[in-house]
Write a protein that binds this DNA or RNA. Structure first.
Lengths: 319, 319
DNA sequence: TCGGGTTCATAGCTATATTCTATCACAATA
DNA sequence: TATTGTGATAGAATATAGCTATGAACCCGA
């Protein structure tokens, strides 16, 4: 793109500008902390390289030529921009002044980001985070391509060779109609009770859908053929039908609002996913990400499960 | 103003941008026509100097850090501006691409510039001339201060140590009422005929006023106490009074429009002023000014003196 | 008109910076 | 396992930018 080197250096531009300011070689040299001959030599070189005389000097007085006037104007602009570049670099010397691109999966994004964002904004006022909502595979691809700085996702799917910091354990909750047999007790539920029950799950592309299907297979639950594209859809189906569904605890407060539904936690060891912040092993600002992950961990909300009758039981189960 | 040197060179910026373009050290080095270790070394140095890692490199892949993204963006800007600076300098390598500031005296400006401007514009399409109308002393002052590149004035006043190129000889013409005794013949006038005649002249600040007074003193003409501030005023006075006045031939066509007036030329050696382009001896683009002066000389108008009865006589006298 | 005190330019040397070639260590690929 | 390709490193060669000392032209005051 830029095959040939520039015929001048930034330092030479400084010399030219300094000389234009004071129109006196000795004084200009002083301001640049070099000797007068050095400044003379550099000026001579730049004029020779350009084939243009920038200053008219006749022993007694130094003044700008028309070419010099135009040159100095542009040179000042360049030096200002170069100063700005130094400023930019130094701002990034503080990694919390960057703009981070972080991928986040759709089954986390709408429930967690509204809680995290204000906390992060307060903790790192100069940090700007651009969230990109994608499924796990796309996040990992973009992460390794360098388009993302980090990803916020579940560790239960294969994430490959990355560094990770766990944010929280997010247990699975059972969402079911009040009228469903499993809604009868308030005890923590054994997963074996799912056997034979009709369960609606997410599309396989969602990692949470994959996890739910695995759990159902292990417990001999019956997986309905319908594949929802979002947790919202999933809950709607249950509210209008006779099946049940699994959703992450983090989503309960926002998704389960229908009074015909109730929510039950599983007995320990409850099925759960592990939410983590991940990044490339070679990422240079890993220390900053570790600290940010720590802040996220502390900001992670206690799930609020105000759908009776199981609020207290699930509250205990979620930790 | 800018005491400390910049922590990077333009060349290093080129390296960084080239590397950001191809994300491969060897290829980037090739594009910059240096060896790969040189590029590695320069990149390492700039990162060390800034204390910021611009590229993340893990043996297999090179990608930009957030800092690197911001840095490269600004670096591209700077390199573009630097290219523009080279362009500016080269354009001035052709001195006919400059903007020249040329001072011109008020007794030349309104009559000559309208004729010169279109010719100069056509001859030097990339040259832009900014005309500054001032009296001779101000022009010479600004010329030596470097605020003007050249001056267009009369050599009959002291112009000091400058280089000059003569544009034209501009003879003095006598403007007088038709009814005046000197209007009786069509012959070229001997200056001695002015003896005893009442002559109106310009203010002394105008060099033409000074010249006219000198001529009057030599020919024993009577100088009226009134001092006009412009040639227009001067001609108006003559049209309404009983005196005569002297104006430069170049001004006749524009100023002498009253049919009650007529114009007479002087016999050779006729009094005249010498219009010239002058500039500092140290001016770097003197060759260009010489050529421009030559173009001005050829563009100099034959005075059109269509005030009868002396049109033909003065036409001859003006060369 | 003759020195001091300016000005900017030049010369010769030195230290630093930049670049080169050659090579290494590592990872992916065949 | 051998090969190819990556970026980093080492040490020598070169180029650059810096310095001091000095020169030539000019101004100014004695």
């Amino acid at each position: 793109m830029n095959p040939k080197p520039h015929p001048f250096t930034l330092r030479q531009l400084q010399y030219v500008v300094a000389l234009a300011d004071v129109l006196n070689f000795r004084e200009a040299a002083e301001r640049c902390y070099v000797s007068q001959p050095s400044l003379s030599a550099q000026l001579a070189q730049i004029e020779r390289a350009l084939g243009v005389r920038l200053f008219e000097r006749d022993k007694r007085r130094v003044i700008l030529t028309p070419a010099g006037r135009a040159f100095v104007r542009q040179a000042r602009l360049i030096l200002r921009e170069a100063d700005a570049l130094v400023e930019i670099a130094h701002r990034f010397g503080d990694p919390f002044s960057a703009t981070l691109h972080i991928g986040v999966i759709p089954t986390i994004s709408p429930y967690l980001l509204p809680k995290l964002t204000p906390v992060l904004r307060e903790a790192y006022p100069r940090l700007s985070i651009r969230w990109i909502e994608e499924k796990t595979t796309a996040i990992l691809r973009d992460l390794h391509a360098g388009h993302l700085d980090a990803g916020l996702l579940s560790l239960e799917t294969e994430v490959g060779d990355v560094d990770a910091e766990v944010i929280a354990r997010d247990p699975f909750m059972l969402v079911l109609p009040r009228t469903h047999p499993l809604a009868a007790t308030t005890d923590a539920l054994q997963t074996e009770k799912l056997a034979g029950v009709t369960v609606f799950v997410l599309q396989e592309e969602h990692c949470f859908g994959e996890q739910a299907r695995t759990l159902c297979a292990k417990t001999n639950a019956h997986i309905d053929a319908f594949r929802a594209t979002s947790l919202t859809t999933l809950v709607q189906i249950v509210a209008n039908g006779e099946g049940v569904t699994l959703i992450p605890a983090i989503a309960v407060a926002h998704e389960v609002t229908d009074p015909q539904l109730c929510v039950r936690a599983f007995a320990e060891p409850a099925p759960a996913r592990t939410i983590a912040l991940v990044w490339r092993k070679s990422y240079p600002f890993d220390a900053a990400l570790r600290e940010i992950a720590d802040t996220m961990r502390r900001a992670y909300p206690r799930p609020v499960l105000d759908r009776e009758p199981l609020a207290s039981a699930t509250g205990a189960g979620s930790e």
